[in-house]
Amino acid sequence: MATQATVNQDEKSIWGGGNKPLGASYGKLMMWFFLISDALTFSAFLVAYGAYRFKFETSWPVPEDVFTHFPFLHGDWPLLYVALMTFILIMSSVTMVMAVNEGHKMNQKGVTVWMFATIIGGLIFLGSQAWEWYHFILGDHGAVRLEDGRMAHIADHNGETVSLHTLIHGEGAEHDHYEKFATEDVIAAFKSDSRLQLLFPGKNRDIASHNASLPLIEKSYVVQGANMKENEYGHPLFANFFFFITGFHGFHVFTGVLLNLIIFINIIKGTYERRGHYEMVEKVGLYWHFVDLVWVFVFTFFYLV
């Protein structure tokens, strides 16, 4: 009897109100529950990407062949640029932890400095993503789209991709990213060199010999760069998922920068100094780390796997 009463008393004192049973404030709990739902949303997107990649396994572009540019460097640098973007985001996560850490010590100046660094990191990341999108949309080698919807790159006798630029202007000509090529010119140039073949982008790198390619390229048209309908890299859904998933993540980063900016202004105004704690920095920090966390997964499933 007595034991029963004690248990009830304990239950009541924990869950009966006026107490924090989970040891966290309302705002922090709600941020965590929002992040759970957001994690499920992102996982649904990435799983959908995986599903269509499995379905169209043979014509799905190999990411290392797509994202090969690095600012101010010529040639192919697969993965390096996204690795840099990952580094920027991890770094801005570190500055955010630093800001939270200074907040615990009620050091207004410290929070201001680290929060500012976090905002700058977020802006650099957004800029990098804009650069990445720009090059993805502009295109690299150029390709032809066959009548059956398949994408094909022009390849030399070794099976190495030949860009439309090299095909028309020859090896060593000054490269112009913006030049658009007419379908007739590309078909004529392809026909005139019997060493050229068609390469189908994808992990198998299937090749159609010159003679087998002739009837195919006759009814094709040139595709340069990427949009929502078609892209030179391979299956159209690849670009759609790229725009959607990295775009949705970029939107999260953008929102995060805005939230950080609002908190930053409040820090300068001394709002949290008067309030007696810097918990708002912790809450916005949770969101910011989550954005970093999602990027870790996007990096793996879009660029590595």
Binding site: G23, A24, L29, S93, V100, H289, L293, V296, F299
Partner: peptide
Amino acid sequence: ILTLVKAYYIVMYFMHLKYEAKTL
């Protein structure tokens, strides 16, 4: 596996989950 390792450290240390209440 390497990604999950990174995720574990971000959530547990940067997001501070390791030091929250067990129920949470």
